[in-house]
């Protein structure tokens, strides 16, 4: 028996499809998972004045801001990803993202935001004026991981979770299939259909939201090093065991490709990266998908994963 539930959070729609022993149990478990997503939204959204992240952005230049354990751990992971991706992934682009959302992007600058995390006090402090954090897609990945944990605690072993279809996490597989079917929008037909089982997927492309400046169309993914938006050309899909990690690397991969680098040289071996439309399309040759012929009942059409 499949239940579908959805909620609006982090500026997008989160949806769950889950199998459980009965409908009431499935709905209750799903609602608890959605509440967890809403709790993540309440802490990490830049769109809410009462979120913990907004509090950090208002106050962290003046004093240390205490964090809950989950938020501290998420920020610590972001620092790790910033270092592992050679700065291609960076959450200290909040001010630039705010300009982008307002449709008033100022000329790119190399001025850098900076912050410190204090593990002993479990707090964050900005060390440079003008710093602002934007967790963006990694918050979606983390929310999916938290929601999946709630589902597991409730005894749910088979579920598909997604945030805005660009962030996807599969718990187990449907009982009548070997995986949850997902189609990658914009990827070529021979690599667009995949099945997920105990796996996460993140799809990124700069053209999800764009800003037109004169004759130029600018994508919403920025190169943190220069502050410049990427041209909306490439799209990347990253598969791996953890949704948060996939989100960081799908964003970073776009930036690295734009810099003319091969993201696979930096990414951990347990991640699978696919790209199309990149200046150097070599990644596609390494991304031959494994197609499974059977669909499952819950999603007669596969979930279409569209880049954010």
């Amino acid at each position: 028996m499949h239940e579908r539930l959805a909620t609006a959070a982090m500026g997008t729609r989160f949806e769950l499809v889950l199998e459980a022993r009965d409908a009431a149990h499935a709905r209750a478990a799903g609602e608890a998972a959605l509440e967890e997503i809403e709790r993540c939204d309440a802490r990490w959204s830049v769109f809410r004045s009462d979120s913990l992240l907004s509090r950090v952005n208002r106050e962290a230049l003046e004093h240390d801001v205490a964090l809950d354990g989950e938020t501290f751990e998420l920020l610590a992971a972001c620092v790790h990803f910033q270092q592992a991706t050679q700065g291609a992934f960076d959450i200290a682009v909040g001010a630039r993202m705010r300009e982008f959302r307002a449709g008033a992007l100022s000329p790119a600058t190399a001025q850098r935001g900076a912050f410190e995390l204090d593990a002993a006090r479990r707090s964050v402090r900005f060390t440079r004026e003008g710093t602002s954090l934007d967790l963006g897609a990694i918050a979606k990945g983390e929310a999916l991981e938290r929601a999946a944990e709630v589902l597991r605690e409730a005894g749910v072993e088979r579920a598909l979770l997604h945030g805005g279809t660009s962030s996807v996490l599969a718990l187990g597989a449907p009982s009548d299939a070997s995986g949850w079917r997902v189609r990658l929008a914009g990827f070529e037909a021979d690599s667009s259909d995949v099945e997920l089982c105990e796996r996460a997927l993140s799809v990124s492309a700069p053209h999800g939201r764009t800003l037109r400046v004169g004759d130029h169309e600018l994508g919403h993914v920025l190169d943190p090093r220069s502050g410049a938006p990427l041209a909306p050309l490439a799209r990347c899909a990253v598969f791996g065991p953890n949704a948060r990690e996939c989100e960081a690397w799908s964003t970073a991969a776009l930036v690295l490709l734009a810099r003319g680098l091969d993201p696979r040289e930096l990414a951990p071996a347990h991640l699978e990266l696919r790209a199309c439309g990149a200046p150097n399309d070599s990644l596609r040759a390494h991304s031959a998908p494994t197609l499974h012929p059977r669909a499952h009942d819950a999603l007669r059409e596969p979930l279409c994963s569209t880049p954010r």
Partner: peptide, 26 residues
Amino acid sequence: MSSSPDRRDFLLHTAGGLAASLFTPS
């Protein structure tokens, strides 16, 4: 390459691209 950060005692620093002046609400 390790995928998980070191969560033991540390003081972490990072820096990233930034351009705009910060809006400071009430």
